[in-house]
Design a protein around this nucleic acid. Structure first.
Lengths: 340, 340
DNA sequence: AACGGCTAGGCAAACGTATGCCTTAACCGA
DNA sequence: TCGGTTAAGGCATACGTTTGCCTAGCCGTT
């Protein structure tokens, strides 16, 4: 209470024991300590408001309880749900997360990864957006390699080839299944609003869509439009569809936000959803529930949780890929195709 | 590249200099070093993939570049925007943020604060939800006091009495101004859907609403309904209003999410917004733009940025309160009151 | 009586870095 | 020639822990 900062040394002195004894009491070591001494040390530590230096601990034990988390943008609900999953299992295990926003910039990703390394993080979870085609991508892989060499666990949440285990959603399957849902409602001419070009996730979702359409022998009426992962992109893409009739039977957007943007454009144009056209998205963010959007729920929280658990358990598994399952959530923006 | 982990000692040896010289080169100390030696050290460090231990640095310099951030729930956009503001200025200054979700539980808040202290954070930014009436609130203040004694900067983002500087939005003013906006559109009978009971923010927003109504001599037609900060709460509150006609002229919700919930209930009941009734919220989350909700924009990002800057600059200012300004954003859910 | 094992506790080294202080050499002006 | 300043670099200590190894006493066994 009096001293500005109290170290183990001070606690030991005040309790009349050696530093090692104090340490052993406070860490709950298996080394035998008399009940009396133990109580004395604990009481003294309490009284002095002792706070063990996690820094010193990490230094000597050569392992911190820090987990680095790299996301594109924490404001994006996609990433915040992942981050939440990570933090929940991390803090339950006594770990703390270092969060960093990298804004889809691989160079930033590399630099932040280096920072996490400097802090001797137990592990790093990379949930950046994953631009496969980025010329810096190999450098990132190198940085990941260096981290691993230093004993830092790395886990990727997008399936880029980073030389570390990947835990991710089955994006392709998700897109496939929601497409299938639209087909089961009788829709045939389906337009797909793509995600940002170059991103792994974008590609996987488009592949899923096309695979499903192909399997149904509908590849000739499948249509892909350039889009993006945000509201405006969806809005714009839908406007373009509206401008060149006839409208498709249904629109699938690579993303809930884009789907809502499309929804908005359609309704502004006086087009009834789902009366005249169905709309669906992917992700099942809270937003989707608000507007009643049909979508597919991705295991984002679980991805984060699992990745954190992987780091904490110091699991190996170098090139393993874990695919978590999804679920189509039908809501009010999709309906059976109207006759005619 | 070869050694699993390389320390300054190894770099020094490999470069044929002493540890202190290596240190001075790598930290850019003002101590004079010959250009040749400097180059040699830098090259060696590069070749060995040297990563300076931030832990050891922090230990010896007695100050880390870690900033603790306590939020209720990072998935809530309110907090993620704040967190983004923090991280942007933090990482630009070479700091890294430790994020922790405390779920409105003061006990968790205290425990996480302790963890941040153990890591000798340079500062802690407390953006928990702020339950004033919580019996543990004094304990939190004590924990903050201990942290400060240890040289840890503390900043609160809600105006609880924590004995540390407060940087916050003018919640009362925001509610006042958006109420005023509704009045200026001719509305008189306004219903306010409150936030969760016991929270500072809830109370301030209600106060702002009531103050504005009082000033307009309309306290007799001002009506407050219990609500909450989420979609369901707004939905429920609106349902109750619908069940007992007549409808008010307008509804102000303490929150965008609740406002959207109310909007949803009204439209489900076939009530035209803004034709028959106006609806407004507070916060101006992305969601508000999507649904065209009239709201008031709060400086959440700036709050975070400013708090981080405060920590980094190690500013004093014990009991100071900084109020950041807001702006009413009229959109499509409010309109002039229909005649009759 | 000698010895093994257990309990309780202390000593000191190590983790990786920063920095105050010292030494040496070179250089400059008087 | 000499004192003084400056450049360049090394030595050693400190930061706050953990932990392997050692000591001392005590008890029980043979």
């Amino acid at each position: 209470m009096l001293s500005a900062v109290s170290s183990l040394v001070e606690v030991a002195r005040a309790a009349g024991v050696s530093v090692s004894t104090a340490s052993r009491v406070l860490t709950g070591s298996s080394h035998p300590i008399s009940a009396k001494t133990r109580a004395k040390v604990i009481a003294t530590a309490e009284k002095l408001g002792y706070s063990p230096s996690a820094l010193a601990r990490a230094l000597v034990s050569r392992s911190s309880r820090l987990i680095g988390v790299l996301v594109s943008d924490i404001v994006n609900p996609y990433f915040s749900v992942i981050a939440r999953g990570i933090d929940d299992v991390a803090s339950r295990a006594g770990y703390v997360t270092m969060l960093s926003n990298v804004d889809r910039r691989t160079s930033t990703e590399i630099s932040r990864l280096r920072t996490m390394r400097d802090y001797r993080a137990a592990g790093v979870i990379i949930a950046g957006s994953g631009f496969e085609a980025d010329p810096l991508a190999p450098d990132l892989a190198v940085a990941v390699g260096q981290a691993k060499e230093q004993g830092i666990q790395a886990v990727s949440l997008t399936s880029r080839d980073l030389g570390c285990p990947v835990i991710t959603a089955d994006n392709e399957g998700a897109a496939h299944d929601v497409t299938d849902h639209l087909l089961s409602l009788g829709h045939r001419r389906i337009a797909f609003i793509e995600g940002p070009p170059g991103m792994t996730t974008s590609k996987q979702r488009r592949d899923g869509f096309l695979a499903c359409m192909n399997a149904a022998n509908l590849s000739d009426v499948a249509r892909c439009l350039p889009g993006g992962f945000d509201f405006e992109a969806g809005h714009l893409a839908a406007m373009r569809l509206i401008a060149r009739p006839p409208l498709p039977d249904a629109i699938l957007a690579a993303n809930d936000e884009a789907a809502v943007g499309a929804l908005n454009a359609l309704r502004q144009a006086g087009i009834d959803v789902p009366g005249e056209i169905s709309v669906a998205g992917i992700n099942d963010l809270r937003l989707a529930r608000f507007v009643g959007l049909t979508t597919v729920s991705l295991p984002l929280y679980e991805m984060g949780a699992m990745a954190a658990q992987h780091v904490i358990d110091a699991l190996p598994g170098d090139a393993t890929t874990t695919l978590l399952s999804h679920r189509v959530i039908p809501r009010e923006t999709t309906a059976r195709r109207p006759p005619g």
